[in-house]
Design a protein around this nucleic acid. Structure first.
Lengths: 253, 253
DNA sequence: CGAGAACTTGACGCTTTTCAAGTTGGGTGG
DNA sequence: CCACCCAACTTGAAAAGCGTCAAGTTCTCG
């Protein structure tokens, strides 16, 4: 139902036909081409490699693989996670349409795995070709730096969340953040589907699956949200924002 | 005693004399000029702004300030921290000689504060001039991207630490990390001074000051380290690495 | 329709925090 | 030079929050 048409093993049409230009992509206001002039967008189009479809749970790249390309999410959702020596995983982020994957790998090899949370599609951006273009389109380079900088800031916000916040506040931050990102993409900020499992949410927020389940129940009981399976509706966004900001005291169980 | 000479309010010598070239800097193998040819290092030298000295607790930049420059630490140590709406702070990193400050601000404004942990000095790198140089020295641009990418990876490692590790493991990771960074700078990997307070360490690791104090005492009692005020000696680095990697079970109190 | 995955809920226990009361050391003023 | 003071740190006891374990329910998919 929520999956985008068919997912053939081999492309049903020619590669050329599959190639949709950045200017025609609904995400071009959020993605790499943001703010570029038409002529420059076309140059970017030239270097975009094949688009790649991934089924649910399929891996885009893996820790240790040599770096070659960045990936822009066209549709669908991804999670990225690190695994340490002891085999424990930590989800470092959830990515949706218009967001860039693979920036941690520019140093040489991938430092995390990226896995599709649902049937998804990415644009492959060969980095060596992008580097060539940087010399010719300064605006592109500048925007690329902004994107990397924002990724650093995003991760610092997660550090703040994991280091300083209680479970309730973490979860509120999570919901408010999803809401804002869907809003930026033209979707409802108050009603959306969680594309990740409770376990993934818990891992990302430094909590257990049981804690997430309890938080969902508690938020529901408080009347802040409505939950049906993975469908969530924010009934009191202002309250959630206050809890997320920490300006609202925690409620007792 | 550990502080580098005098710290006059006004420069005792001319600005020109203060300007030391990158090639003469002991950190050039770790810092921005890494891997550049001599000619290109000289070009980088040209754009480096004034060096700036900061006393202990002095602030280099603050959240909300407009972005203008990156800063390379010449000597001394810094901490960077975020503050959320509720006024809670989270230290996002400790920076030492050869490391770059301010990458989170490229998006437009600073998203954290940077404060000197001791009397320190930085090289100011006006970003607009650096951008100009990117077009002329591709090797510099490539290295800059590597540095930003490594910063992203570093933060993902902190997320793993905050999200998945117990106090003992977090603290072992912290010590082992400091040890490796001092080793890379030619200092002893087993004996060094903590430049930050217990409170700063606790904040960074998502723990309280009391927990840090207890961990230090416990590690000392185990014979893994020796502690005298802020002077630390790693007596059993292999053990600490094992605890940090999680391949060693936690010991009882 | 059946099996397994995903999720929920409750009881209990452990890790870490909180609160409290010191101790130590560096810096300052008399 | 010493006494004093405050910041930084240490240590203990009690409490809280979240994890662990366990059992059960619901949903999904073959």
């Amino acid at each position: 139902m929520n999956q985008p048409m068919s997912l053939p093993g081999t492309p049903p049409v020619s590669i050329q036909a599959l190639k949709t230009s950045c200017s025609a992509c609904s995400m071009h206001q959020l993605c790499l081409p943001m703010g570029l002039e038409d002529a420059d967008i076309n140059r970017l189009d030239q270097i975009i490699g094949r688009r790649r479809r991934l089924a649910r749970d399929e891996r885009l790249y893996q820790m240790g693989e040599p770096f070659g390309s960045l990936y822009a999410v066209r549709f669908g959702h991804f999670k990225t996670y690190q695994v340490n020596a002891a085999g424990e995983a930590q989800i470092t982020g959830f990515q949706m349409a218009g967001e860039l994957l693979g920036m941690d790998a520019i140093s040489g090899t991938h430092h995390c795995d990226a896995v599709a949370l649902e049937d998804s599609e990415v644009c492959e951006i060969p980095f060596s070709r992008l580097e060539e273009l940087f010399g010719e389109v300064p605006a592109l380079l500048r925007h690329f730096h902004r994107i990397m900088s924002q990724e650093i800031t995003r991760e610092q916000n997660v550090m703040l969340l994991l280091g300083n916040m209680r479970a309730e506040q973490r979860f509120a931050v999570f919901l408010v953040n999803l809401s804002a990102r869907y809003a930026a993409r033209g979707y409802s900020p108050t009603s959306f589907q969680l594309r990740m499992s409770r376990e993934d949410i818990g891992n990302y927020l430094g909590l257990t699956i049981e804690s997430i389940s309890r938080l969902l129940s508690r938020f529901k009981k408080q009347g802040w949200i409505q939950v049906d399976k993975r469908e969530v509706t924010l009934l009191d966004p202002a309250k959630l924002k206050a809890v997320a900001a920490g300006t609202d005291v925690c409620s007792p169980a």
